[in-house]
Nucleic acid binder design. Sequence first.
DNA 1: GGCCAGGTAAACCGATCGGTCTACCTGGCC
DNA 2: GGCCAGGTAGACCGATCGGTTTACCTGGCC
Lengths: 232, 232
Amino acid sequence: MGTKTKKEPEAAAATATGPGAATQLTPGARRILDAASTLFYERGITAVGVDLIAKEAGTTKKTLYDRFGGKDALITAYLHERDLRWRAWLTSWVDTHAAGGGQSGAGEPLLATFDALAEWMRQHNPRGCGFVNAAAELPDPAHPARRVITEQKRWLRGYLYELSVAAGAHDPDELADGLALLHEGAVVLRGLSVVDDPVGAARALAAQTLERALTPPCAAGPPVADTPPHGR
Amino acid sequence: MGTKTKKEPEAAAATATGPGAATQLTPGARRILDAASTLFYERGITAVGVDLIAKEAGTTKKTLYDRFGGKDALITAYLHERDLRWRAWLTSWVDTHAAGGGQSGAGEPLLATFDALAEWMRQHNPRGCGFVNAAAELPDPAHPARRVITEQKRWLRGYLYELSVAAGAHDPDELADGLALLHEGAVVLRGLSVVDDPVGAARALAAQTLERALTPPCAAGPPVADTPPHGR
DNA sequence: GGCCAGGTAAACCGATCGGTCTACCTGGCC
DNA sequence: GGCCAGGTAGACCGATCGGTTTACCTGGCC
Protein backbone atom coordinates (compact mmCIF):
# COMPACT_ATOMS: atom_id res chain seq x y z
CA MET A 1 0.00 0.00 0.00
CA GLY A 2 1.50 3.30 -1.10
CA THR A 3 1.64 6.51 0.84
CA LYS A 4 -1.38 7.88 -0.93
CA THR A 5 -3.79 10.09 0.86
CA LYS A 6 -6.53 7.49 1.05
CA LYS A 7 -7.18 5.37 4.14
CA GLU A 8 -8.27 6.47 7.58
CA PRO A 9 -11.74 7.95 7.34
CA GLU A 10 -11.36 11.52 8.52
CA ALA A 11 -14.61 11.68 10.42
CA ALA A 12 -13.23 9.06 12.76
CA ALA A 13 -11.82 12.10 14.49
CA ALA A 14 -15.36 13.07 15.40
CA THR A 15 -16.03 9.73 17.01
CA ALA A 16 -13.53 9.55 19.79
CA THR A 17 -11.51 12.71 20.00
CA GLY A 18 -11.82 16.45 20.35
CA PRO A 19 -15.01 18.16 21.41
CA GLY A 20 -15.34 20.49 18.44
CA ALA A 21 -14.35 17.87 15.90
CA ALA A 22 -17.95 17.19 15.02
CA THR A 23 -18.44 20.69 13.65
CA GLN A 24 -16.62 20.77 10.32
CA LEU A 25 -18.12 17.99 8.28
CA THR A 26 -18.42 17.54 4.58
CA PRO A 27 -21.90 18.58 3.39
CA GLY A 28 -22.68 14.99 2.53
CA ALA A 29 -21.33 13.76 5.83
CA ARG A 30 -23.41 16.37 7.62
CA ARG A 31 -26.60 15.16 5.98
CA ILE A 32 -25.69 11.56 6.72
CA LEU A 33 -25.09 12.25 10.38
CA ASP A 34 -28.32 14.21 10.65
CA ALA A 35 -30.32 11.47 8.99
CA ALA A 36 -28.64 8.81 11.08
CA SER A 37 -29.33 10.72 14.28
CA THR A 38 -33.02 10.96 13.55
CA LEU A 39 -33.37 7.38 12.37
CA PHE A 40 -31.26 5.85 15.11
CA TYR A 41 -33.18 7.62 17.82
CA GLU A 42 -36.66 7.13 16.39
CA ARG A 43 -36.40 3.58 15.08
CA GLY A 44 -33.53 2.04 16.94
CA ILE A 45 -29.93 1.51 15.99
CA THR A 46 -29.92 -2.12 14.89
CA ALA A 47 -33.25 -1.71 13.13
CA VAL A 48 -31.88 0.97 10.81
CA GLY A 49 -29.64 -0.09 7.95
CA VAL A 50 -26.95 1.90 6.22
CA ASP A 51 -28.87 1.76 2.95
CA LEU A 52 -31.78 3.58 4.51
CA ILE A 53 -29.53 6.19 6.08
CA ALA A 54 -27.82 6.92 2.79
CA LYS A 55 -31.10 7.15 0.95
CA GLU A 56 -32.67 9.39 3.57
CA ALA A 57 -29.64 11.66 3.47
CA GLY A 58 -29.82 11.90 -0.30
CA THR A 59 -26.41 10.33 -0.69
CA THR A 60 -25.01 6.87 -1.30
CA LYS A 61 -23.40 4.27 0.88
CA LYS A 62 -20.12 5.10 -0.76
CA THR A 63 -20.10 8.54 0.79
CA LEU A 64 -21.14 7.11 4.12
CA TYR A 65 -18.27 4.66 4.20
CA ASP A 66 -15.81 7.20 2.81
CA ARG A 67 -16.68 9.71 5.54
CA PHE A 68 -17.33 7.52 8.56
CA GLY A 69 -15.67 4.22 7.85
CA GLY A 70 -18.51 2.03 9.01
CA LYS A 71 -21.78 1.80 10.88
CA ASP A 72 -20.16 1.47 14.28
CA ALA A 73 -18.27 4.71 13.83
CA LEU A 74 -21.45 6.39 12.65
CA ILE A 75 -23.26 5.20 15.75
CA THR A 76 -20.47 6.58 17.87
CA ALA A 77 -20.56 9.91 16.06
CA TYR A 78 -24.33 10.10 16.53
CA LEU A 79 -24.08 9.57 20.27
CA HIS A 80 -21.11 11.88 20.60
CA GLU A 81 -22.87 14.75 18.92
CA ARG A 82 -26.04 14.16 20.89
CA ASP A 83 -23.97 14.24 24.04
CA LEU A 84 -22.43 17.57 23.06
CA ARG A 85 -25.84 19.06 22.36
CA TRP A 86 -27.21 17.90 25.70
CA ARG A 87 -24.26 19.22 27.68
CA ALA A 88 -24.45 22.59 25.96
CA TRP A 89 -28.19 22.74 26.49
CA LEU A 90 -28.01 21.88 30.18
CA THR A 91 -25.13 24.16 31.12
CA SER A 92 -26.46 27.14 29.22
CA TRP A 93 -29.90 26.64 30.73
CA VAL A 94 -28.51 26.50 34.23
CA ASP A 95 -26.31 29.52 33.59
CA THR A 96 -29.15 31.67 32.32
CA HIS A 97 -32.00 30.48 34.54
CA ALA A 98 -30.27 30.22 37.87
CA ALA A 99 -27.59 32.87 37.70
CA GLY A 100 -29.80 35.72 38.84
CA GLY A 101 -31.52 35.85 42.19
CA GLY A 102 -33.12 32.50 42.71
CA GLN A 103 -35.57 32.84 45.53
CA SER A 104 -35.25 29.25 46.62
CA GLY A 105 -31.65 29.72 47.66
CA ALA A 106 -28.37 28.03 46.87
CA GLY A 107 -30.04 24.95 45.43
CA GLU A 108 -31.55 26.89 42.55
CA PRO A 109 -29.05 25.68 39.89
CA LEU A 110 -29.66 22.09 40.91
CA LEU A 111 -33.39 22.47 40.54
CA ALA A 112 -32.88 24.22 37.24
CA THR A 113 -31.36 21.06 35.83
CA PHE A 114 -34.79 19.47 36.04
CA ASP A 115 -36.38 22.36 34.20
CA ALA A 116 -33.73 22.04 31.54
CA LEU A 117 -34.49 18.34 31.30
CA ALA A 118 -38.22 18.98 31.01
CA GLU A 119 -37.76 21.43 28.17
CA TRP A 120 -35.21 19.21 26.43
CA MET A 121 -37.58 16.28 26.50
CA ARG A 122 -40.50 18.39 25.41
CA GLN A 123 -38.53 19.40 22.34
CA HIS A 124 -36.87 16.19 21.21
CA ASN A 125 -37.26 13.21 23.46
CA PRO A 126 -40.48 11.30 22.90
CA ARG A 127 -38.64 8.00 22.94
CA GLY A 128 -36.66 8.25 26.15
CA CYS A 129 -32.96 8.66 26.64
CA GLY A 130 -31.01 8.06 23.47
CA PHE A 131 -28.07 6.80 25.47
CA VAL A 132 -30.00 4.34 27.55
CA ASN A 133 -31.67 3.09 24.39
CA ALA A 134 -28.31 2.78 22.68
CA ALA A 135 -26.90 0.88 25.65
CA ALA A 136 -29.80 -1.53 25.35
CA GLU A 137 -28.92 -2.22 21.75
CA LEU A 138 -25.15 -2.45 22.17
CA PRO A 139 -24.50 -5.25 24.64
CA ASP A 140 -20.88 -5.64 23.61
CA PRO A 141 -18.81 -3.82 26.24
CA ALA A 142 -16.04 -3.42 23.68
CA HIS A 143 -18.18 -1.39 21.30
CA PRO A 144 -16.65 2.07 20.83
CA ALA A 145 -19.99 3.73 21.46
CA ARG A 146 -20.14 2.34 24.99
CA ARG A 147 -17.45 4.77 26.06
CA VAL A 148 -19.55 7.69 24.85
CA ILE A 149 -22.56 6.40 26.74
CA THR A 150 -20.86 5.93 30.09
CA GLU A 151 -19.04 9.23 29.65
CA GLN A 152 -22.35 11.01 29.15
CA LYS A 153 -23.81 9.59 32.36
CA ARG A 154 -20.61 10.19 34.26
CA TRP A 155 -20.49 13.79 33.11
CA LEU A 156 -24.00 14.48 34.36
CA ARG A 157 -23.19 13.02 37.76
CA GLY A 158 -20.02 15.10 37.85
CA TYR A 159 -21.92 18.23 36.91
CA LEU A 160 -24.50 17.60 39.61
CA TYR A 161 -21.66 17.03 42.04
CA GLU A 162 -20.08 20.38 41.17
CA LEU A 163 -23.38 22.16 41.61
CA SER A 164 -23.90 20.34 44.90
CA VAL A 165 -20.55 21.48 46.20
CA ALA A 166 -21.25 25.04 45.07
CA ALA A 167 -24.61 24.92 46.81
CA GLY A 168 -22.92 23.96 50.05
CA ALA A 169 -24.33 20.48 50.48
CA HIS A 170 -22.81 18.73 53.43
CA ASP A 171 -22.68 15.46 51.50
CA PRO A 172 -22.37 16.42 47.82
CA ASP A 173 -21.70 12.82 46.79
CA GLU A 174 -24.93 11.58 48.24
CA LEU A 175 -26.85 14.52 46.83
CA ALA A 176 -25.40 14.09 43.35
CA ASP A 177 -26.21 10.38 43.38
CA GLY A 178 -29.77 11.05 44.41
CA LEU A 179 -30.36 13.74 41.84
CA ALA A 180 -28.78 11.60 39.11
CA LEU A 181 -31.20 8.84 40.08
CA LEU A 182 -34.13 11.20 39.76
CA HIS A 183 -32.94 12.43 36.38
CA GLU A 184 -32.66 8.94 34.93
CA GLY A 185 -35.90 7.79 36.46
CA ALA A 186 -37.76 10.76 35.04
CA VAL A 187 -36.39 10.17 31.55
CA VAL A 188 -37.32 6.50 31.62
CA LEU A 189 -40.82 6.94 32.96
CA ARG A 190 -41.62 9.55 30.38
CA GLY A 191 -42.84 7.93 27.20
CA LEU A 192 -44.07 4.98 29.20
CA SER A 193 -47.41 6.46 30.12
CA VAL A 194 -47.39 5.44 33.75
CA VAL A 195 -46.73 8.69 35.57
CA ASP A 196 -48.41 11.89 34.48
CA ASP A 197 -45.51 14.28 34.83
CA PRO A 198 -42.35 12.36 35.69
CA VAL A 199 -40.04 15.34 35.45
CA GLY A 200 -42.31 17.41 37.64
CA ALA A 201 -42.44 14.63 40.20
CA ALA A 202 -38.67 14.31 40.06
CA ARG A 203 -38.24 18.02 40.52
CA ALA A 204 -40.57 18.05 43.50
CA LEU A 205 -38.72 15.18 45.11
CA ALA A 206 -35.42 16.89 44.32
CA ALA A 207 -36.66 20.02 46.05
CA GLN A 208 -37.41 18.02 49.18
CA THR A 209 -34.03 16.35 49.05
CA LEU A 210 -32.28 19.65 48.51
CA GLU A 211 -33.98 21.21 51.47
CA ARG A 212 -32.64 18.47 53.67
CA ALA A 213 -29.21 18.34 52.08
CA LEU A 214 -28.53 22.05 52.39
CA THR A 215 -29.50 22.50 56.02
CA PRO A 216 -26.77 21.82 58.57
CA PRO A 217 -26.74 18.17 59.58
CA CYS A 218 -27.50 19.05 63.22
CA ALA A 219 -30.63 21.03 62.40
CA ALA A 220 -33.58 18.72 62.07
CA GLY A 221 -32.15 15.42 61.01
CA PRO A 222 -33.35 12.59 63.24
CA PRO A 223 -30.68 10.02 64.02
CA VAL A 224 -32.26 7.30 61.94
CA ALA A 225 -30.01 4.46 60.88
CA ASP A 226 -29.35 5.01 57.22
CA THR A 227 -27.79 1.61 56.80
CA PRO A 228 -30.07 -0.89 55.08
CA PRO A 229 -30.79 -4.15 56.91
CA HIS A 230 -28.45 -6.14 54.71
CA GLY A 231 -25.65 -3.63 54.92
CA ARG A 232 -23.28 -2.22 52.29
CA MET B 1 -58.26 -23.46 3.94
CA GLY B 2 -60.48 -26.17 5.31
CA THR B 3 -61.74 -26.53 8.82
CA LYS B 4 -58.74 -28.59 9.76
CA THR B 5 -57.18 -28.26 13.14
CA LYS B 6 -54.20 -26.27 11.88
CA LYS B 7 -53.95 -22.50 12.19
CA GLU B 8 -53.89 -20.37 15.30
CA PRO B 9 -50.64 -21.03 17.10
CA GLU B 10 -51.65 -22.16 20.57
CA ALA B 11 -48.95 -20.34 22.48
CA ALA B 12 -50.47 -17.09 21.29
CA ALA B 13 -52.59 -17.54 24.37
CA ALA B 14 -49.48 -16.98 26.42
CA THR B 15 -48.72 -13.75 24.67
CA ALA B 16 -51.66 -11.58 25.41
CA THR B 17 -54.09 -13.32 27.66
CA GLY B 18 -54.39 -15.17 30.94
CA PRO B 19 -51.78 -14.94 33.65
CA GLY B 20 -51.10 -18.63 34.09
CA ALA B 21 -51.12 -19.41 30.41
CA ALA B 22 -47.36 -19.41 30.24
CA THR B 23 -47.07 -22.44 32.48
CA GLN B 24 -48.11 -25.42 30.37
CA LEU B 25 -45.85 -25.36 27.35
CA THR B 26 -44.69 -28.12 25.08
CA PRO B 27 -41.19 -29.29 26.04
CA GLY B 28 -39.83 -27.86 22.84
CA ALA B 29 -41.68 -24.61 23.32
CA ARG B 30 -40.37 -24.40 26.87
CA ARG B 31 -36.79 -24.73 25.70
CA ILE B 32 -37.38 -22.19 22.95
CA LEU B 33 -38.83 -19.64 25.36
CA ASP B 34 -35.99 -20.19 27.81
CA ALA B 35 -33.36 -19.76 25.12
CA ALA B 36 -35.13 -16.72 23.71
CA SER B 37 -35.36 -15.12 27.14
CA THR B 38 -31.66 -15.45 27.75
CA LEU B 39 -30.64 -14.35 24.27
CA PHE B 40 -33.09 -11.45 24.04
CA TYR B 41 -32.01 -10.05 27.36
CA GLU B 42 -28.27 -10.55 26.95
CA ARG B 43 -27.81 -9.62 23.30
CA GLY B 44 -30.82 -7.54 22.41
CA ILE B 45 -34.05 -8.43 20.67
CA THR B 46 -33.40 -7.29 17.13
CA ALA B 47 -29.84 -8.56 17.24
CA VAL B 48 -30.98 -12.12 17.91
CA GLY B 49 -32.37 -14.10 15.01
CA VAL B 50 -34.88 -16.92 15.10
CA ASP B 51 -32.31 -19.32 13.64
CA LEU B 52 -30.04 -18.77 16.61
CA ILE B 53 -32.87 -19.21 19.08
CA ALA B 54 -33.93 -22.50 17.54
CA LYS B 55 -30.37 -23.78 17.46
CA GLU B 56 -29.67 -22.74 21.03
CA ALA B 57 -32.88 -24.43 22.16
CA GLY B 58 -31.93 -27.64 20.36
CA THR B 59 -34.98 -27.41 18.12
CA THR B 60 -35.76 -26.10 14.66
CA LYS B 61 -37.46 -23.02 13.35
CA LYS B 62 -40.40 -25.19 12.42
CA THR B 63 -41.17 -25.89 16.05
CA LEU B 64 -40.71 -22.24 16.93
CA TYR B 65 -43.22 -21.09 14.34
CA ASP B 66 -45.61 -23.95 15.12
CA ARG B 67 -45.67 -23.07 18.82
CA PHE B 68 -45.41 -19.30 18.82
CA GLY B 69 -46.46 -18.16 15.39
CA GLY B 70 -43.69 -15.66 14.85
CA LYS B 71 -40.89 -13.66 16.37
CA ASP B 72 -43.14 -10.87 17.59
CA ALA B 73 -45.27 -13.29 19.59
CA LEU B 74 -42.14 -14.87 21.00
CA ILE B 75 -40.90 -11.47 22.11
CA THR B 76 -44.23 -10.82 23.77
CA ALA B 77 -44.15 -14.18 25.51
CA TYR B 78 -40.63 -13.49 26.75
CA LEU B 79 -41.60 -10.17 28.27
CA HIS B 80 -44.83 -11.54 29.67
CA GLU B 81 -43.09 -14.35 31.50
CA ARG B 82 -40.37 -12.05 32.78
CA ASP B 83 -43.08 -9.76 34.09
CA LEU B 84 -44.76 -12.62 35.93
CA ARG B 85 -41.46 -13.65 37.52
CA TRP B 86 -40.72 -10.10 38.66
CA ARG B 87 -44.18 -9.57 40.17
CA ALA B 88 -44.01 -12.86 42.03
CA TRP B 89 -40.52 -12.07 43.26
CA LEU B 90 -41.41 -8.59 44.49
CA THR B 91 -44.65 -9.43 46.23
CA SER B 92 -43.31 -12.53 47.93
CA TRP B 93 -40.24 -10.62 49.08
CA VAL B 94 -42.33 -7.82 50.54
CA ASP B 95 -44.69 -10.30 52.19
CA THR B 96 -41.91 -12.22 53.90
CA HIS B 97 -39.50 -9.40 54.73
CA ALA B 98 -41.87 -6.73 55.93
CA ALA B 99 -44.74 -8.67 57.44
CA GLY B 100 -43.20 -9.06 60.86
CA GLY B 101 -42.30 -6.18 63.13
CA GLY B 102 -40.43 -3.69 61.01
CA GLN B 103 -38.67 -1.31 63.34
CA SER B 104 -38.83 1.55 60.88
CA GLY B 105 -42.61 1.72 61.03
CA ALA B 106 -45.39 1.64 58.51
CA GLY B 107 -43.09 2.38 55.60
CA GLU B 108 -41.25 -0.90 55.98
CA PRO B 109 -42.94 -2.66 53.04
CA LEU B 110 -42.16 0.26 50.76
CA LEU B 111 -38.51 0.18 51.71
CA ALA B 112 -38.49 -3.57 51.26
CA THR B 113 -39.28 -3.12 47.57
CA PHE B 114 -35.81 -1.66 47.14
CA ASP B 115 -34.22 -4.62 48.88
CA ALA B 116 -36.17 -6.92 46.61
CA LEU B 117 -34.93 -4.92 43.63
CA ALA B 118 -31.35 -5.10 44.82
CA GLU B 119 -31.46 -8.85 45.20
CA TRP B 120 -33.29 -9.32 41.90
CA MET B 121 -30.66 -7.35 40.06
CA ARG B 122 -27.84 -9.10 41.84
CA GLN B 123 -29.21 -12.40 40.57
CA HIS B 124 -30.20 -11.68 37.00
CA ASN B 125 -29.94 -8.13 35.85
CA PRO B 126 -26.50 -7.15 34.69
CA ARG B 127 -27.90 -5.45 31.61
CA GLY B 128 -30.53 -3.19 33.10
CA CYS B 129 -34.27 -3.45 32.90
CA GLY B 130 -35.39 -5.93 30.27
CA PHE B 131 -38.53 -3.92 29.69
CA VAL B 132 -36.82 -0.60 29.21
CA ASN B 133 -34.37 -2.29 26.86
CA ALA B 134 -37.22 -3.88 24.96
CA ALA B 135 -39.01 -0.55 24.69
CA ALA B 136 -35.86 0.90 23.21
CA GLU B 137 -35.85 -1.74 20.50
CA LEU B 138 -39.56 -1.70 19.72
CA PRO B 139 -40.42 1.84 18.63
CA ASP B 140 -43.66 0.82 16.96
CA PRO B 141 -46.45 1.69 19.41
CA ALA B 142 -48.62 -0.94 17.76
CA HIS B 143 -46.26 -3.76 18.60
CA PRO B 144 -48.05 -6.30 20.84
CA ALA B 145 -45.13 -6.35 23.26
CA ARG B 146 -45.61 -2.67 24.04
CA ARG B 147 -48.71 -3.48 26.01
CA VAL B 148 -46.77 -5.88 28.21
CA ILE B 149 -44.09 -3.26 28.82
CA THR B 150 -46.44 -0.48 29.86
CA GLU B 151 -48.48 -2.90 31.93
CA GLN B 152 -45.39 -3.94 33.82
CA LYS B 153 -44.49 -0.36 34.70
CA ARG B 154 -48.08 0.50 35.52
CA TRP B 155 -48.35 -2.49 37.80
CA LEU B 156 -45.30 -1.44 39.81
CA ARG B 157 -46.67 2.06 40.25
CA GLY B 158 -50.01 0.61 41.31
CA TYR B 159 -48.34 -1.72 43.76
CA LEU B 160 -46.35 1.13 45.26
CA TYR B 161 -49.56 3.12 45.49
CA GLU B 162 -51.30 0.34 47.40
CA LEU B 163 -48.41 0.07 49.82
CA SER B 164 -48.39 3.85 50.20
CA VAL B 165 -52.06 3.88 51.10
CA ALA B 166 -51.55 1.03 53.53
CA ALA B 167 -48.67 2.90 55.11
CA GLY B 168 -50.90 5.89 55.69
CA ALA B 169 -49.22 8.37 53.38
CA HIS B 170 -51.13 11.60 53.19
CA ASP B 171 -50.45 11.83 49.47
CA PRO B 172 -50.07 8.26 48.21
CA ASP B 173 -50.06 9.37 44.59
CA GLU B 174 -47.10 11.63 45.05
CA LEU B 175 -45.29 9.04 47.11
CA ALA B 176 -45.89 6.27 44.59
CA ASP B 177 -44.66 8.49 41.77
CA GLY B 178 -41.52 9.37 43.65
CA LEU B 179 -40.70 5.81 44.59
CA ALA B 180 -41.37 4.61 41.06
CA LEU B 181 -38.93 7.24 39.84
CA LEU B 182 -36.30 5.98 42.24
CA HIS B 183 -36.86 2.39 41.17
CA GLU B 184 -36.40 3.14 37.49
CA GLY B 185 -33.46 5.42 38.08
CA ALA B 186 -31.70 2.78 40.14
CA VAL B 187 -32.19 0.10 37.50
CA VAL B 188 -30.90 2.34 34.74
CA LEU B 189 -27.84 3.61 36.58
CA ARG B 190 -26.80 0.13 37.51
CA GLY B 191 -24.73 -1.41 34.77
CA LEU B 192 -23.63 2.04 33.68
CA SER B 193 -20.77 2.34 36.12
CA VAL B 194 -21.46 5.87 37.22
CA VAL B 195 -22.89 5.46 40.70
CA ASP B 196 -21.39 2.93 43.10
CA ASP B 197 -24.57 1.55 44.61
CA PRO B 198 -27.59 2.96 42.81
CA VAL B 199 -30.13 0.80 44.62
CA GLY B 200 -28.63 1.69 47.97
CA ALA B 201 -28.75 5.37 47.10
CA ALA B 202 -32.33 5.01 45.92
CA ARG B 203 -33.27 3.24 49.12
CA ALA B 204 -31.66 5.93 51.24
CA LEU B 205 -33.49 8.65 49.35
CA ALA B 206 -36.70 6.66 49.61
CA ALA B 207 -36.27 6.45 53.36
CA GLN B 208 -35.98 10.23 53.54
CA THR B 209 -39.04 10.67 51.38
CA LEU B 210 -41.00 8.16 53.41
CA GLU B 211 -40.20 9.91 56.63
CA ARG B 212 -41.66 13.09 55.25
CA ALA B 213 -44.62 11.47 53.56
CA LEU B 214 -45.77 9.57 56.61
CA THR B 215 -45.65 12.43 59.09
CA PRO B 216 -48.71 14.66 59.28
CA PRO B 217 -48.53 17.49 56.75
CA CYS B 218 -48.66 20.13 59.47
CA ALA B 219 -45.57 18.86 61.24
CA ALA B 220 -42.46 20.45 59.80
CA GLY B 221 -43.21 21.31 56.23
CA PRO B 222 -42.19 24.88 55.40
CA PRO B 223 -44.58 26.67 53.09
CA VAL B 224 -42.22 26.79 50.13
CA ALA B 225 -43.81 27.23 46.75
CA ASP B 226 -43.67 23.85 45.07
CA THR B 227 -44.63 25.27 41.72
CA PRO B 228 -41.74 25.40 39.25
CA PRO B 229 -40.91 28.81 37.80
CA HIS B 230 -42.53 28.03 34.50
CA GLY B 231 -45.51 26.39 36.01
CA ARG B 232 -47.45 23.64 34.23
C1' DG C 1 -4.73 22.41 -18.13
C1' DG C 2 -3.89 19.09 -14.41
C1' DC C 3 -5.09 17.45 -10.07
C1' DC C 4 -7.96 15.88 -6.64
C1' DA C 5 -11.42 15.90 -2.88
C1' DG C 6 -16.17 15.23 -2.77
C1' DG C 7 -19.98 13.30 -4.55
C1' DT C 8 -23.54 10.31 -7.44
C1' DA C 9 -25.03 6.00 -9.38
C1' DA C 10 -25.31 1.34 -9.29
C1' DA C 11 -23.66 -3.24 -9.45
C1' DC C 12 -21.92 -6.63 -6.51
C1' DC C 13 -20.46 -9.66 -2.39
C1' DG C 14 -21.45 -13.29 1.23
C1' DA C 15 -24.21 -13.59 5.16
C1' DT C 16 -28.26 -13.35 7.58
C1' DC C 17 -32.98 -11.86 8.21
C1' DG C 18 -38.07 -13.63 9.27
C1' DG C 19 -40.79 -17.05 7.51
C1' DT C 20 -42.53 -21.27 4.78
C1' DC C 21 -42.30 -25.78 3.15
C1' DT C 22 -41.87 -31.00 2.46
C1' DA C 23 -40.57 -35.25 4.43
C1' DC C 24 -40.01 -38.30 8.03
C1' DC C 25 -39.96 -40.07 12.82
C1' DT C 26 -42.13 -40.93 17.46
C1' DG C 27 -45.41 -42.09 21.15
C1' DG C 28 -49.92 -42.10 22.98
C1' DC C 29 -54.79 -42.60 22.41
C1' DC C 30 -59.01 -44.54 20.33
C1' DG D 1 -54.20 -50.62 12.98
C1' DG D 2 -55.30 -45.64 12.21
C1' DC D 3 -54.79 -41.08 13.68
C1' DC D 4 -52.48 -37.14 15.08
C1' DA D 5 -49.89 -33.85 18.02
C1' DG D 6 -45.20 -32.92 18.67
C1' DG D 7 -40.86 -32.92 17.07
C1' DT D 8 -36.41 -33.19 13.91
C1' DA D 9 -33.98 -32.22 9.67
C1' DG D 10 -33.12 -29.32 6.15
C1' DA D 11 -34.05 -27.14 1.80
C1' DC D 12 -35.95 -23.01 0.24
C1' DC D 13 -37.93 -18.07 -0.36
C1' DG D 14 -37.35 -12.96 -1.20
C1' DA D 15 -35.52 -9.29 1.30
C1' DT D 16 -32.17 -6.99 3.65
C1' DC D 17 -27.90 -6.78 6.22
C1' DG D 18 -22.98 -4.36 6.46
C1' DG D 19 -19.56 -3.51 3.30
C1' DT D 20 -16.81 -3.11 -1.27
C1' DT D 21 -16.05 -1.85 -5.90
C1' DT D 22 -15.94 0.44 -10.56
C1' DA D 23 -17.06 4.30 -13.25
C1' DC D 24 -18.19 8.91 -13.98
C1' DC D 25 -19.20 13.79 -12.82
C1' DT D 26 -18.19 18.38 -10.55
C1' DG D 27 -15.89 22.57 -8.84
C1' DG D 28 -12.04 24.76 -6.84
C1' DC D 29 -7.21 25.40 -6.45
C1' DC D 30 -2.42 25.49 -8.11
